[in-house]
């Protein structure tokens, strides 16, 4: 899923400083699963903003809605009737949400309440880790299910570099060296030979480096 963190309250308050009636929009997709932008978090943000405004002696009207997905025009359509009743809308979805909303409702101002960080999963309750860099050409099968593009600080394809120490990356003793894990897994499985062959330079055209990406599925496109 896409993993995000909520922005600091001060930053969100600055965004809406001259607005008195807002809508906070949650998303039931990834941000609900990573506990940052679902029904519950929309309530918490709503209450927090109202507390801040009350403290200033100013009122703030906040409505809340959490839709199925903000990355889908079909669901965005649901707020059509009321979206322009607000001074501003705060989206708690990933970076896709406020953009889809802005495109659908050009008259309205949409603010992002979260910082979208990475593609990952929860390794334990409350802890999420990056697993995928969305490079567009998956190679994890060559590395026994461990992705060096996303998980090596230098995205090395022929690691580990000389900074690997006791299983950790040179950037921090808290970041595991993925190449250490790859080498150990290959050794355990008696397939070290896999790592002796040279992996040539990666084609980054399928990644962000090739420009904004698009996926067209002819059998589905109307």
């Amino acid at each position: 899923m896409i993993v995000a963190d909520r922005k600091p309250l001060s930053e969100i308050l600055d965004m809406i400083t001259d607005r008195d009636k807002i809508l906070i929009m949650g998303c039931k997709g990834c941000v609900t699963v990573c506990n940052v932008g679902g029904v519950k978090e929309v309530q918490i943000l709503s209450s927090s903003l109202k507390i801040a405004r009350k403290k200033e002696g100013r009122s703030l009207t906040v409505d809340q809605i959490t839709i199925e997905r903000q990355c889908d025009p079909e669901y965005i359509e649901q707020v059509k009737a009321t979206i322009n009743d607000y001074d501003a809308v705060i989206s708690m979805a990933c970076g896709v949400g406020p953009q889809f909303l802005s495109e659908a409702y050009p008259q309205q101002k949409f603010f992002p309440a979260v910082n979208t960080k990475f593609f990952g999963g929860a390794t334990s309750h409350g802890i999420w880790e990056e697993r995928c860099a969305g490079c567009g050409t998956c190679v994890i099968h060559y590395f026994d299910g461990l992705c060096p593009v996303a998980r090596c600080s230098k995205s090395l394809m022929n690691g580990p570099c000389g900074g690997s120490s006791k299983g950790y990356c040179e950037i921090s003793k808290e970041v595991p060296c993925i190449w250490d894990m790859i080498v150990k897994k290959k050794m355990e499985q008696g397939r070290l030979d896999d790592l002796l062959c040279f992996t040539p330079a990666k084609n980054w055209r399928t990644s962000r480096d090739g420009g904004p990406r698009k996926s067209v599925r002819e059998e589905l496109a109307i």
Binding site: K154, M157, G159, G162, G163, E170, T199, P200, A201
Partner: peptide, 24 residues
């Protein structure tokens, strides 16, 4: 060389490249 990660240096906010690695 691969090079030390920029986080150690005096411009830790830089974007790194690592288009290719030292082997390549």
């Amino acid at each position: 060389l691969s090079g030390d990660h920029q986080i150690f240096g005096n411009h830790p906010e830089a974007k790194n490249v690592y288009d290719i690695d030292s082997m390549q």
